[in-house]
């Protein structure tokens, strides 16, 4: 994030105080996190519900998973906020412009994780990149990775499903963004952009990058905690509640039949179902976890999740402003095939 030249706040807290505060908060976090299981068990025990009943299991799941995911998010969102303060869209563009395809796609996908991004910035970023000489395919690698591989998705997978699946999602999300962007670049579809986008000379705004102190970056971290929590807490609650309902009420063999590894059509069906759905990682992952628990195959579920996040209809409508329908179709085709491949590969491997 770049901002104009300005004065520091009038009474900044001394730097040492900030470091001490962050360290103390970290310590409190660790202590609280280690007590979480015991605390949630105690909370369930205090309720007038039989622990091993249906409702008791659901409550235990809810009272443990919600605080756990919230705490993990708190930590990671803060850390990512601090890290992101070192990056900006302008800086990423400068790093990517004129970059050759291949290495450029890899760099773009990686930068997609750390560059501050929200879906309402997708169009301005797209135009800003393309007009500054970032190759189209490299721009797509960035735009695929940025929403799909994000810290909220990774934390929720880590917290609810396990680190292996989170690592796999991170790895394959990046590979998908790199490969899909590379393929789109090789197709040379620049003439399928909307006319005005090709002709535009985006202003190269010169925002003075101010030198920021570490406390300023901590504040940046706190700000992203406030902002991301304000946005996703309701999705987390809704997602985990829906997940708990699936835990309790969806019959096991139904999911094995519909989403098991033995059903060849389940992966394409999952991708198609995911396109019109629009939620974010926070809402979809608790459902993913519950589906896995009911015998759905990992590849099928990953395909569903990637499709929901990376191929959403509202995002297509936003991108329609800069891309022709033909180019959007190619985008959906390439990314969709990539997701299919990931899905089948996983069902084969695991």
């Amino acid at each position: 994030m770049a901002t104009g030249h300005l004065h520091a706040p009038r009474h900044p807290a001394p730097e040492r105080l900030w470091h001490a505060g962050v360290a103390a908060a970290g310590l409190v976090w660790v202590l609280a996190y280690r007590q979480l299981a015991a605390l949630s068990e105690a909370a369930v025990a205090a309720l007038p519900v039989e622990r091993h009943s249906h409702l008791g299991e659901a409550l235990a799941f809810f009272l443990y998973d919600v605080p756990k995911v919230m705490m993990l998010l708190l930590l990671v969102v803060f850390a990512m906020g601090v890290l992101r303060s070192f990056f900006s869209a302008e800086r990423t563009r400068a790093l990517l412009s004129g970059r050759a395809e291949g290495a450029g796609n890899v760099l773009a996908a990686g930068l997609g994780i750390v560059t501050p991004f929200c879906s309402c910035s997708a169009v301005p970023i797209f135009i800003g990149f393309v007009s500054a000489g970032v190759p189209l395919g490299v721009t797509f690698s960035f735009l695929i990775a940025a929403p799909m591989v994000n810290e909220v998705a990774l934390v929720m997978l880590f917290g609810l499903v396990g680190w292996q699946v989170a690592a796999v999602y991170l790895g394959f999300g990046l590979v998908l963004a790199v490969v899909a962007g590379f393929v789109i670049g090789k197709l040379h579809l620049e003439h399928w952009l909307q006319d005005w986008v090709r002709d535009i000379q985006a202003g190269g705004a010169e925002l003075d990058e101010e030198r920021r102190t570490l406390p300023a970056r901590y504040r940046e971290g706190l700000r992203s905690v406030r902002e991301i929590f304000g946005r996703v807490w309701i999705w987390i609650l809704a997602g985990i509640a829906l997940g708990a309902a699936i835990h309790g009420y969806v019959p096991e063999d139904l999911m094995v039949r519909i989403m098991g590894a033995g059903t060849w059509w389940s992966v394409p069906a999952a991708v198609l179902m995911g396109i019109p759905m629009y939620t974010n990682a926070a809402g979809v992952i608790p459902v993913v976890e519950a589906l896995l628990g009911k015998g759905a195959a990992l590849g099928t579920v990953l395909a569903f999740m990637m499709s929901v996040i990376a191929l959403s209809l509202p995002e297509m409508i936003i991108l329609r402003q800069v891309l022709t329908l033909r180019l959007i179709a190619v985008f959906i085709g390439v990314v969709g095939s990539g997701i299919l491949a990931v899905g089948y590969l996983f069902n084969l491997l695991f």
Partner: peptide, 28 residues
């Protein structure tokens, strides 16, 4: 979107005061 891009804004919201872009990306 065209005017946003022409102003050089890549991260929204961007703010310009008297024609000079002073901020882009997030709340100021």
């Amino acid at each position: 979107p065209k005017s946003i891009a022409q102003a050089g804004v890549m991260a929204t919201p961007g703010i310009a005061v008297d024609g000079k872009l002073v901020h882009s990306g997030g709340l100021p």
